[in-house]
């Protein structure tokens, strides 16, 4: 991956927080994604396990992240995701690309998207698919931000 490709419109590398909210310890997926995103040239901040929504929102703000990927395999996504969204909104963060991955029943995806989740990835999603989604989505937001500013 060339540097030119990994830098979106704004010119800087994409910064993404990979986070594990809640209590489940299933970090295989989060670590694979973190590594794939890093190998694709992004700056990856992996929070580690058992993060509260408050901790995740604080990390996103502190790291000035372009995107955040939440990995949840505990079934608690309908509680944890809205909480993260709410906290980010309360801090005035509107332009971060939020994705969710894990054991998420298909029925829950529309509701998560309505809340502002850009995409939901379930078991079987390829790392390529996720990398290119994040890149495109961040590019679009940066373009939009450049046009409106």
């Amino acid at each position: 991956m060339s540097d030119a490709e990994t830098k979106a419109e704004g010119g800087r590398k994409i910064r993404i927080v990979v986070a594990k909210p809640g209590l489940d310890g299933h970090d295989r997926g989060a670590k694979i994604i973190a590594r794939a995103l890093r190998d694709a040239g992004m700056e990856v901040i992996y929070t580690g396990l058992h993060q509260t929504a408050e901790q995740i929102a604080a990390t996103v703000i502190q790291e000035d992240a372009d995107a955040v990927g939440l990995s949840i395999l505990s079934g608690a996504h309908m509680t944890l995701v809205p909480r993260v969204v709410e906290l980010l909104r309360a801090e005035g963060v509107e332009d971060v690309v939020l994705t969710v991955g894990g054991t998420i029943p298909a029925d829950d995806a529309p509701e998560l998207k309505r809340l502002g989740v850009a995409e939901v990835f379930t078991p079987g999603a390829s790392t390529d698919e996720i990398v290119s989604f994040v890149r495109t989505a961040v590019d679009e937001r940066r373009t939009l931000a450049a046009q409106t500013s």
């Binding site: 209590l23 505990s74 608690a76 909480r83």
Partner: peptide
């Protein structure tokens, strides 16, 4: 469930959304 595995009671703030789920 996850709170039980982590030694947290069901009414603990960190148990929110996980009680009786997994």
């Amino acid at each position: 469930d996850m709170p039980t595995l982590m030694g947290l009671d069901s009414d603990h703030a960190r148990s929110l959304g996980e009680v009786g789920v997994e």
